[in-house]
């Protein structure tokens, strides 16, 4: 069993007004230090049938391309962790 930790973010060319609004709010709170804010989505998927890390990666790529990310404006990256199933 594998746990996929997936991050979906806007591509750099895509404007993200929500992140800009958060940055403005942080500046208002006095955090002049915050030079930029990125806002994305985070998913955790448990894959029960994948036999290998390669197989799990193939499935996650497919899932991201077909649903979790809109490749027109978003990119994604992920980590896979093998889960030890308790007997």
């Amino acid at each position: 069993m594998y746990l996929a930790k997936i991050h979906v973010n806007y591509k750099r060319s895509i404007l993200n007004p929500e992140a800009q609004a958060i940055q403005t709010a942080l500046l208002r709170l006095g955090y002049q230090d915050v030079a930029s804010v990125k806002l994305g989505k985070y998913f955790e998927l448990k894959l029960t049938n994948s036999q290998s890390k390669e197989q799990a990666a193939k499935e996650v790529d497919e899932i991201c391309d077909r649903l979790l990310a809109n490749v027109n404006m978003e990119s994604y990256h992920y980590q896979l962790e093998e889960l030890v199933v308790a007997k």
């Binding site: 404007l15 929500e18 800009q20 404006m73």
Partner: peptide
């Protein structure tokens, strides 16, 4: 229609949020 890829491109959040 864009999500179904029957039309190209996509619709994102309005610029003024």
């Amino acid at each position: 229609l864009t999500e179904a890829r029957l039309l190209p491109g996509s619709l994102q959040r309005n610029q003024e949020s």
